[in-house]
């Protein structure tokens, strides 16, 4: 099986610090790939390189076999890679529907849209409602509600729904459960599984080992700026994963990367 997203030999230096040291990366269609690594291992640089927020000094990225080089997150997004940032990137005072369509608004057809640039609010609200419903974010009373009136889990839900709605090829989730309580984390994990069930592969960056082991199909262990190994969560324990991550244990020799 061909990886949907593949990176080879990525290098990124910040001055004398090497954040990515000839790093490889593979994401298979329809899977949840967790990326774990100690602080400073370079996993966020890796993710930024894939999502277009950082331009690698060397190496290349292929999306569905096609070579791509993103210069901004917008370009990655246009190619079908959606990222849910840890900060969620939402405007608190604007409504759920406004936020879902921020930067890709729909205009009314005909003269109202073309000449007067009027937004098609009804269509955007319907779309937003449908997408939230699809992901089980039910019982939305008011899609015009400002995002700041939602709880942390609800906001995360809207952000994931936005990514799932527009991310046609890959969805990247950066620490989606870090700021949430136990109960809300659970709901977000279910949401992640829902997104996978719809056939969209997910890259999940997380520090939370129980969450990683629960939802991930494969785990990419990042260490010292490169991929140390890729493990199957069924074959290893969480303490093994932490040991690989910190260098306390030798990685397995058989690479299960692809």
């Amino acid at each position: 099986m061909e990886p949907i997203l593949q990176a080879r030999n990525l290098v990124k230096r910040y001055g004398r610090v090497v954040a990515l040291d000839h790093c490889d990366f593979d994401l298979m269609p329809g899977e949840i790939l967790a990326v774990i690594g100690d602080n400073g291992a370079g996993k966020s640089t890796l993710i930024k390189a894939i999502s277009g927020a950082v331009i690698p000094d060397d190496g290349h990225i292929r999306l569905e076999g096609e070579k791509v080089s993103f210069r901004s997150p917008i370009e990655a997004r246009e190619a079908g890679i959606e990222t849910v940032y840890q900060t969620l990137a939402m405007s608190p005072a604007l409504s759920i529907a406004d936020n879902m369509f921020m930067g890709r608004e729909l205009r009314k057809p005909g003269i109202m849209g073309q000449v007067f640039r009027q937004l098609d609010r009804a269509a955007m609200e319907k779309f937003a409602r449908d997408k939230l419903n699809e992901l089980g974010l039910l019982t939305i009373q008011n899609i015009r509600q400002p995002v700041e009136t939602l709880s942390g889990g609800q906001r995360q839900g809207v952000a994931v729904a936005r990514a799932a709605a527009f991310g046609s090829k890959v969805v990247i989730l950066d620490e989606p459960t870090a700021a949430l309580g136990v109960k809300e984390s659970r709901k977000v994990l279910e949401l992640i599984l829902d997104v996978r069930a719809r056939g969209i592969p997910i890259i999940l960056i997380s520090h939370n080992m129980p969450h990683v082991f629960e939802v991930a199909d494969r785990i990419h262990v990042h260490r010292l700026g490169r991929r140390l190994c890729v493990i199957n969560p069924a074959d290893y324990s969480m303490s093994d994963a932490v040991a690989f991550m910190t260098g306390a244990k030798e990685p397995p020799h058989i690479d299960q990367a692809a």
Partner: peptide, 8 residues
């Protein structure tokens, strides 16, 4: 089981 409820 609902992920997020938007009830007032």
């Amino acid at each position: 089981k609902t992920v997020a409820q938007f009830d007032d």
